[in-house]
Each structure stands twice: as C-alpha cells, then as structure tokens.
Write a protein that binds this DNA or RNA. Structure first.
Lengths: 338, 338
DNA sequence: TGTTTGATTGGTAACGTTTGCAAATTTTTA
DNA sequence: TAAAAATTTGCAAACGTTACCAATCAAACA
C-alpha cells in the first residue's frame, strides 16, 4: 500500500519537510499562509501521519494493551467497552489481546505488547502465576492489575484497581442471613483465581461470624461457565440436599444452577435461594432476574484507566496506587425470606 | 521507559549492529558461536525488538484493525473472540476499535487506523453510509466487510463475508409456515441497517410466497437491545393481538419480547410463538431456550480473516471476494405447532 | 605460492518523522 | 540608514531497525 509522506508534500508545496511538519503540528513559528497552503495539499493528497515514525521518535505510541481472559464473558466485554471509551478520552487507543484463556501464553503476549511499545498495560484476570509475570515485565512497561487482584496484599508490588471481592461476598452472606438462611453452599471455588479465593474467604468468614453453616463446592473445570455451573449443580441437586441457599461464585455459574434446577424440577427461589456475583447484563433478563453482587465494570474501567494514565505520566516508578472499589448488592428475584 | 536497543547489544557483544540483527533474525550468514553469544546477551539484557522501527522499514505491522459497533452485543463479542484466535494463527494481532456505536465517528477511526499503518481492516456493522467510507479509504488500506453487508449487491466494490441474512429469514418464514402459522409479525426493522433490511425482505418475500400474512413493526431506537424489544413488544401486546407468531430481527430484541410477555402475562410459546436471529449464547439459557437463526460467528470470523489475509498479500487491488455463508436454524422451545 | 572460493563481518543508507541550530528574510529600533 | 530583533525557513541529525554492498579472513584450489 502506497502512502503519501511528508517528503511528497514538501516537494509538491515547494518547501522543506521541516516546514510541512510544522504546519501539521501547528507550531507557532510558521507563516499562516504557507501553513494553509501546505495543509490544503495534505488534504488533497490524503496525507496521513505515519504514527510508527512519530512514535519511534517520541517513544510514545498512545496505545495501551488490554489483556482479557475471555471476552465472551459478559463482564469482561462490559469492561472492555468502558476501557475503550475512557481511554479514548485520554487520547489513547486500545489494543485488545489474549481474549482466549486456554492458549494464553501470557509471557509471549507481554513480550509482544512491549515490542509494540504500548505505553501501558491493563491486565485483568490475575492468577497466582501473575506475580512472577509482574516481576519480569514491570520494569519494561507500566502495568495496572484490573478487576481481579489480591485485596491490599502488600506483597504485591503493583498498581491495581478492583472490586473488593471479600466485601462482595460479605454482602451476600449478610443478605442471606438477613433473609433467615442458616445453612448455605458456596459453589464454584477456583483455587487458581485470587478473585475466587477472596470471594470464598469473605463468604466463609462472614457466615461464620453470623453463625451460619457453609459447605463449599469446588469447581475443578477452572472456568466460570454455564456448563460448569450446570454440572456442579446437577451433582448437588441429585444428592440429598438440605441447604436453603446457594451462593454461586459468578453469575455464569449461577445461570448453570438455574438450568440444572429447571432440568431437575427444583424451583428457585421456592425450594432454594440463589445469589450470584458479577451482575452481568443477562442477570437482569426476564425469567432469570438473578439476585447478585455487582462488580461495577464501568467504575472499575474508568478508575483503572485513570491510574494507568497517572503511572504512564509519572517518572517515579516504584510507587503504587491500589484502589479497592465497593461492590453493590443487586436484589432481584432468586432469593426468598425463610 | 528505557529500552535496550540493538546498538546496546552490539556494544556489549563487541560486534556491529548488523551482526546483532542477523543473530536475531537467524540469518544464515552468521557464525553459530557469535550468534549464541549475541542471543545470550539479548536474553540477559531483556532485549525486545522495537516493532515500530521494524514496521517502519518493512511497511508491515502485522496488525489488523477490527471495528465493532458494540462489543457488549454478544454476537460481536463472539465474533471478536474468533477473529483474534484466527488472526493469531496468521501471525497477526488485533486492534479492536470503536466498540461504541453512539459516538462512532468512523472517519476519524479509519484515519487513525491508517495512521497506525494497520495492514488491513475488518469492518462489521455496515450501514448505508459505509459506502462512501469505502470509496474514501479503500485505496489506503485493504478492507473486508464482515457479518453485515448487502448480499451480493454488485454495486458494492468491496470484499465481504457474511451470513446470508435473506436466506436466514427465509428459513424462519418456512419454519413458522411449517408449524402452521399464517399471520405473523416481523419485529424490529431498522432502516439504517442493511442486515435488517435484508432480513425483513427475506421474511416478507418468503411469507408472501407461502401465503402468510406479515405485519412489520419498526424499531425507531436504532439499537438491537433488550429494552428496545421490550418497548416494542409492550405496545404490541397491549393492543388487540391476533397474530400467532413473532419473528424478532435479533435475539436481543427477542429477549425483550420475552420480558414483555412475562410482564403482561402472555405465555410463550402457548399464546404466541417467538423466533429470533443471531443465536447468541444466551438464547440457549435455561428458561429462555429461544428458537433462532444462527449467524455462525466462528465461521464468519475465520472466513473473514482469511479473505483479508489474501487481500493483504495480493498486490492486485480491484478484485473482490464475496462470501455469503449459509445460516442455520436452531430449534429450541419458543415456537409451537398450531 | 598466488588465486579463488566461501564464510563472516562491518559500513552505510534507507524508512518517515521530529528537533536543535543555523540561515535567510523581514520588521523594528536607534 | 545601519544595526538589532523578530519572523520564517531549511539543513542535518536523530529514533531503532533492516538491507545492500564492500571488506576481511581463513581455507582450498591450481
């Protein structure tokens, strides 16, 4: 593909490349008339700045990399949407990556993004292995952990913005307790996810304080999907089931529970109450109307972009910002008072 | 952010930059020993190729731009996912853009992507105004229209890959007819969307051929959202309603219909049958189980990336590939035999 | 032994910008 | 009117690569 360069414009206008450059970047030291003439020719010839060349000099690309585990998970889709909107307000473009979790060689992805010289990276879906990743790449590029991170664990030397998962589970436990539930199950724990570990801890701790019984069902599949929830809930409902409520670690799992209940004739919330975590769009759907904990993707995205921008524009590395946003209970129709 | 350059490595290794470059690109004309030594130093110093510089020379970025109207629409999310996966197999990275429809100044977006020197653009969500856009930008960058495009209209001078919307609606009409429906409504037509115009035409044409009555409800909101469907269906159900089936132009609209039906005590499929278009993930949900037409996002994405790659790697412009993929009926539980 | 080959290496000019500094031109000042 | 100042321009070097061509050197040939 052939592109018009500054040199071409310069030749056409009979001036030097420097002058053209000045016209384009409206520098003060240029004759308004020449400027107009040059710009006219630019428009006419369809000139477009080669950002590669510019970035090479300025060592700023105005692009941030965003790593999502799975864009098909609606929470991450919402996050991506808001990140893009917000980044644009800062004059930044978004490069979305690694949207599949399975083949995710994060090292390769980071190497690529750094090679592209992105100005910063927003990393979502932190897992225990992320720590080493940070140690390795943080010197080369500003990184902000988004939406999934250990809450306030000082050992994490990294900026981060996320919903307080612990507090979210706390809300859920308190809510169920307030409704009179005494014996509940926590469904879908994933040992490889910090978010899930925190959710689990928050729920178990709070339930304990309130004198409730909690039994935990682990999710060995390692994915928050409807099918995973379906399988887990099937096993649960097929065995004798004494608990009165289920707290699913994610809405997607909760949807699976809903489906299993439907299949096996368990009625929700009459026989068993259900509360999720995420508040994905589809939780609000007719016939679903899932009570859940909102992770406020918009707030997380906005705050995350802001923190990253500050990090990019500050030279002093080694000082990290951590933000823990308050989650919110969204009450719908899958829980009932006992 | 300070980065290690080839020059640094050259100094450290006591060789020339050319030699380092050769080591990195494993060129044949280099002593295996020096190569190893150089590569060792690269690893040790954390050297990462500056792709900006490389692209500047090769005039290839190995990045494609993908423009989505709204990533929160699950169909587009699925599309994005598969595009990324497939592009990676070709050694390409994806730059996702403009995922908000509202503020979408497509001209600015195109200018930006071209300035970034992306190797090609996948444009989804074509609307009538797209034509002028193509005329303007196709000389500067290879473009493939994806998922939404006029079917086989020869006036469109552009490569394209999409589901045959016309045929999809045809399927829907035939299916409803086979079930014995005679009087049906087409809901959610958007005049600004080619996809919707085709869907509408396919449905009306086929219904006509089969001797069915069809009345069309337009969607003035211009968005395929649940709320839009909700509003439209509310009006529909509040007036006297004689039709036996609704064909919603998108699943999202259909979900709105479902919600309205729920609110107003209309039971689906007992009182009225409902069929959607898209087969988004959530159509398969428990308690939704929407019968619909699949747009096969994976197939569309794969084919689209392939066509774009061919376009990028062929010099002769002016020859376009058009692919029209066959849609598929997904039968679930929102339609009943009369 | 002199010449040819082959294997390694280095120098240098691109790629399309921006930028510091000097040159040329115009305007202002004394 | 000459000198000083201000305005407007251009040259050339950088940014970090790659690619062409020449240079070096040891080994192999005649």
């Amino acid at each position: 593909m052939k592109h018009v360069t500054i040199k071409d414009i310069a030749r056409l206008a009979g001036v030097s490349v420097t002058t053209v450059s000045r016209a384009l970047n409206d520098a003060p030291e240029i004759n308004p008339e020449t400027k107009e003439r040059v710009l006219d020719i630019c428009r006419q010839e369809g000139y477009r700045t080669n950002l590669l060349a510019r970035s090479l000099i300025s060592s700023r690309t105005h692009v941030i990399g965003v790593i999502l585990p799975d864009i098909a998970e609606p929470f991450y889709a919402a996050l991506a949407l808001h990140i893009e909107t917000c980044a644009r307000q800062f004059g930044y473009q978004v490069m979305l990556c690694g949207i599949r979790s399975e083949d995710g060689d994060l090292n390769a992805l980071f190497d690529f993004l750094i090679s592209q010289r992105v100005d910063g990276i927003l990393l979502t879906g932190a897992v225990p292995g992320t720590r080493e990743l940070l140690r390795r790449y943080q010197a080369a590029v500003p990184i902000v952990l988004l939406a999934n991170c250990m809450s306030m664990d000082t050992a994490w030397e990294c900026s981060s913005v996320c919903i307080d998962n612990y507090a979210g589970s706390r809300l859920a436990a308190q809510y169920l307790h307030g409704l009179g539930h005494q014996d509940v199950v926590y469904l879908g724990l994933r040992r490889d996810s910090f978010a899930h570990l925190l959710r689990h801890k928050g729920f178990v701790d709070t339930a304990g304080e309130l004198g409730m019984q909690v039994s935990t069902v682990e999710n060995p599949t390692g994915r928050s999907s409807i099918v995973a929830g379906l399988q887990l809930a099937r096993e649960l409902f097929l065995a004798p089931f004494r608990q009165t409520a289920i707290f699913a670690a994610s809405d997607l799992l909760a949807l699976g529970v809903l489906q299993a209940a439907d299949e096996l004739g368990v009625s929700i919330p009459e026989q068993v109450s259900l509360i999720g975590f995420d508040n994905i769009d589809y939780a609000a759907l007719p016939k679903i109307r899932l009570t859940t904990i909102s992770r406020r993707p918009e707030a997380v995205a906005r705050s995350g972009v802001q923190v990253l921008m500050e990090l990019i524009n500050s030279e002093d590395r080694g000082e990290y910002t951590r933000k823990l946003l308050a989650p919110a209970l969204v009450e719908r129709q899958t829980c009932r008072r006992l």
